[in-house]
Design a protein around this nucleic acid. Sequence first.
DNA 1: TCGCGGAATTGACATTTGTCATGCGATGCC
DNA 2: GGCATCGCATGACAAATGTCAATTCCGCGA
Lengths: 215, 215
Amino acid sequence: MEDEHFVNLMHAAYVQNFPPQIELITEGDPSDFLHILLSGTVELFSTWKDRETCMATVYPISTFILAATIKSAPYLMSARTLEKSRIALIPSQDVLAAFDKDNDFARAIVGELATCYRSVVKSQKDLKLRTSLERLANYLLRTQKRAGNGGDFELPTEKRRLASALGMTPENLSRAFKSLQPYGVQVDGNRITITDQEDLERFAKPSPLIDDHTT
Amino acid sequence: MEDEHFVNLMHAAYVQNFPPQIELITEGDPSDFLHILLSGTVELFSTWKDRETCMATVYPISTFILAATIKSAPYLMSARTLEKSRIALIPSQDVLAAFDKDNDFARAIVGELATCYRSVVKSQKDLKLRTSLERLANYLLRTQKRAGNGGDFELPTEKRRLASALGMTPENLSRAFKSLQPYGVQVDGNRITITDQEDLERFAKPSPLIDDHTT
DNA sequence: TCGCGGAATTGACATTTGTCATGCGATGCC
DNA sequence: GGCATCGCATGACAAATGTCAATTCCGCGA
């Protein structure tokens, strides 16, 4: 975007550091600021009745709660830091103003929004078309890929959170890991070792239309 | 948007009529045209392995597969007509061109996209936070509202499709209807009668952050 | 009007998933 | 070092959901 527009956009913005486990925003609240995660990790989650579920995990550098900002509508999800995190906050009205003035910025915003949208659609397909075992298997393959396609890698989250993200209980996740043993999955704490890549892929049947979160 | 831009946008566009049960687009295909439903009904669905699930039902007047158009990425969902439908098709490149030239159009596009995005997020919360019984109860309340808040109304879709949309089997939907009887829900074919509004609402606990699909 | 075919329902049963209680093991703090 | 805490694992059990087969219902066309 143009320098002048960028200066205007950042004029009232500020960067803040947060310790872990801080609730940054609460679902239902009005959307005053666009949030951009610069470092650390943030969890997006939702609650209903006495239940809570992990909707997504945000890694740097990405925005979150962009749609609420654009629509000036209440947040649909809450957000909390998982680690010490640096977050930039830009007043929603400035984002909307920049959108009108700067075409490249508008393009970038709409691109980011479309990516987020497609990401939820993929996640919904994952949920509705697969069993929990299949979801875990595909999650492992995705995580392996992000870690560099090696035979072993670390889980980037605690298992309780992973379970929630995959739409199951922690107890069930434990059992699911055991059920994947025959397909060549070894678990030692947070360390995963895949001993039979082909067998796991044959079971998981990953699809770019569900598992490729880059497009 | 400006007349001139509109004319350019519509220049290569065309309107087509489709009979029911026609597959309009297939997931994985490249996104050549933005689709706009003018009349009729369209189902968005996805498949994996030998399974299929209903992702959303589109009613006029709305676009569908907007995100794929914007990202020039493959469709994530397939679409088929459920009834005789009129659909406008606009070449993707013309949409992108108009986006750059016309600010009001860009605003409208980003607004529509944000609405679709938020709609999937709500649907995902529905799926992950509620049991199938709770999903059905809330679906009935939403449908009642759309039908004018009367004590009785018609289901707008066949039950097999509703079951798929709610993430369950047709057999389970049948049983779920029966289980809602004690809460004042009468079913006669496609006709639903709600005899005890308060009781049903007390059970369903609808929330605008999940069930209000207008914001 | 009859009969066909697809949808819906129903019952019996299997599978999956969740719940609760318990125990283990690592971590951190006094 | 000992103790409390928390995450994780495990077993027993309950509840929810899916599967299969049989039957009923209903709209449509011959």
